[in-house]
Amino acid sequence: MVGSGEIIVNDIRKIFKKGKPDEVRAVDGIGFTINKGELFGLLGPNGAGKTTLIKCISTLLIPDSGSVTVGGYDIYREPLEVRRHIGVLTGGERSLYWKLTPVENLRYFAALYGVSRKVTKERITYLLELMGLVDKSNVRVEKLSSGMKQKLSLARVLIHDPPVLLVDEPTLGLDPYFARFIRDFVKNELNKKLKKTILLTTHYMDEADELCERIAFMNRGKIEALDTPDRLKQSMPQKQVLEIKCQGTIEKDMFETIDGAAGINISHGEGFVFLRWNTDNPELILGNIIELVREKAKIYSVRVTTPTLEDVFVHLTGASLKDA
């Protein structure tokens, strides 16, 4: 056993196209420790290096330098032990054989993981019941919805009952109903009830905030901050956020002339533009800002709130989770 953490990542680096003009420093000197039974989140935009890091930990990629141990096993020297110790949910619904049924898929993966035939039978029954897929157990995967496929992918990951789970973007592309199911399942069933150690990557701020005990902000291959969601939010120098929801064309430089209104974050969603300022005195800038916004857009709501993880990310990196 090396160290006391379940997953120990130490100064790991992975550079693609090394020395070429289009060199990519996907993982650039990252280190952290995940404790046994912890639900740890890696939050970052697309291209931040989250998936590359998961692939390094799961032995799919060989890092250029640094060390990783999972459950005390070294990824370089004991890759088979590492793989026995982990369940990896990556690749979404494509990680299954669509021409096979759920039972056939699970039976196949159980054989790969060396689960005995008797245990395989019990685990398949248990997992299909747990996922609510009993009535679909003999239907080909290609006929299941995306949400059902993701549920089955989770069942696949659990077939050998691994103590550590690496879960990469589990709710990506799912409708709200299945996304909610997966989140609840990860938090309540896997982490709280079954005491699994979970490394979860996501670029959904709410998901990380809701599920994770600790979060590492990842951007351009580096960890920008690592702490509990509350402490990360408390670390913001400004304790309040002024948010305006509007429709129209808003440019960042419109607000340059207003004292104390620098550092605006503009994001788009559901047909609206969201303008957010981190500030200690929203009332000081509110009047001038509303006047300027009104000239270019229709305002739907104005509110003062507390910082979110998105605000922390913007504060640390200068870019939003969606755009970075």
Binding site: I86, T90, R94, S95, L112, Y113, R156
Partner: peptide, 14 residues
Amino acid sequence: WFGTLETIFVAPVP
């Protein structure tokens, strides 16, 4: 092509 290569490659078999 199936998209399953990485999934099977994380299984504990050579």
